[in-house]
Write a protein that binds this DNA or RNA. Structure first.
Lengths: 225, 225
DNA sequence: GATGTCTTGTGAACGGCTGCACATGGTTGC
DNA sequence: GCAACCATGTGCAGCCGTTCACAAGACATC
């Protein structure tokens, strides 16, 4: 038996693997059979040395003097990310965001089919969205069991987010993606990721305002010495 | 004139300031007047020492033996993030995601009013969404000028994203938030942030699959020695 | 098969972030 | 006014991630 677990893959590398995957997807579609770390890095928007180091954590899948075989590298990245299988997704909250996520083609095409929608608005329950029936919150446990849900997505306002997270965990979901702008607490062993859309704007705001102040200082003449 | 630019605020700190802001907002609403670094950190989901160090980059706004005054700290964070003013936002692409973002209350309430919507679908142009008229792509330059747009949000498929980014930059937008799953290239001085919804799922997938493999190894009996 | 060219894989140095532990300094109670 | 207490602010050590620079290895050509 070969030893599978080489050195563990760093978080920073894991977060970039999906980018490499996307780039390699494109290259494959364009008919490229091999790619150098330099070209791959350029397309992924990173440094070539970083790309090579990232890929080296997966194994030695490059050929010195040649580059990486696109098909093979793509398979290895998919394998590392666990994307050789599908991960059915449940979305809680069928508001604007929930609908946008359910419709987002990038989910299904990357192996994350949205197979269940849940909402607590009686008016929505029973109706369909992109072929998926909207079910009440109380059905979460049954849906998770019957549809083998791997990932729960929270797309509701902050107020109910913690309660929904607990509901998902009780139902057996061990991976949660939370869009509610709230800090959630989950038990050990449950993976939680947070996406806060407003935070990104605030970071942009910070940089812009800093540039602005800097230029004001420069224009008004920084006192020398 | 006092020297404004103390040591620069690290990126890691900047990315947490919005979280502290949100927590302090809540505390203020609840009527709290002061908060300790420990409580603040707990609510923000970080280490207390980290919270203190983060806040110390803004200045010495705490009181030893007491804690931080909620109102004052909130003001200082808003000031550091440049949120004492409003930053008008233009959204390109009024599909599901664009609509979700336009409707998202968290934007306006945090100082980012969505004042312009743009799409290239003739059927949508001229219609209203939440009181904002949808305009053609060609109007971007005029909108940026007339409405003093600070931030452009790209919510269209990958294919056109680079072209739209260039359009925004030409129009004078220097901060861009991109939701298209593509690597964009912008000139120096333009701030670009990337949110890829599928990447988050793929990272969850990685962790889940790793846990799964680990438990398989354990169950089948790792060979000792 | 030997030589030159090309690209990977990685050792090592560097810089930034985290978290501990403690000195600093403000507050309260007597 | 003094002593005990409390929470902030920060020096320091360790860790993680990035980048450079180069050795190792594969291919092509003669």
């Amino acid at each position: 038996m070969a030893s599978k677990p080489r050195r563990p893959i760093p978080d920073a590398t894991v977060s970039r693997l999906p980018i490499y995957q996307r780039v390699l997807d494109q290259l494959q579609t364009q008919g490229s059979t091999t790619v150098s770390s330099e070209d791959l890095a350029e397309l992924a928007g990173v440094n070539a040395a970083k790309a090579r180091k990232d890929l080296s954590f997966l194994g030695s899948y490059g050929i010195r003097g040649v580059g990486y075989e696109v098909d093979y590298l793509l398979f290895q990245i998919r394998h590392a990310l666990g994307l050789t299988q599908q991960w059915p997704v449940l979305i809680v909250g069928v508001g604007n965001l929930g609908r946008a996520l359910a419709d987002y083609a990038g989910f299904t095409s990357r192996g994350f089919p949205v197979v269940a929608l849940v909402d607590d608005d009686p008016a929505k329950i029973g109706t369909d969205h992109v072929g998926v029936e909207i079910r009440p919150l109380a059905d979460v446990a049954a849906l998770v069991r019957d549809l083998d849900i791997a990932i729960g997505v929270i797309a509701i306002p902050s107020a109910g987010a913690q309660r929904v997270a607990e509901l998902l965990v009780e139902a057996g979901v061990s991976s949660i993606l939370n869009f509610a702008p709230a800090v959630l607490t989950v038990p050990d062993g449950v993976h939680l990721r947070q996406v806060d859309l407003a935070v990104e704007l605030q970071i942009l705001s910070f940089h812009r305002q800093r540039d602005q102040r800097d230029s004001e200082v420069t224009e008004s003449g920084e006192r020398p010495g």
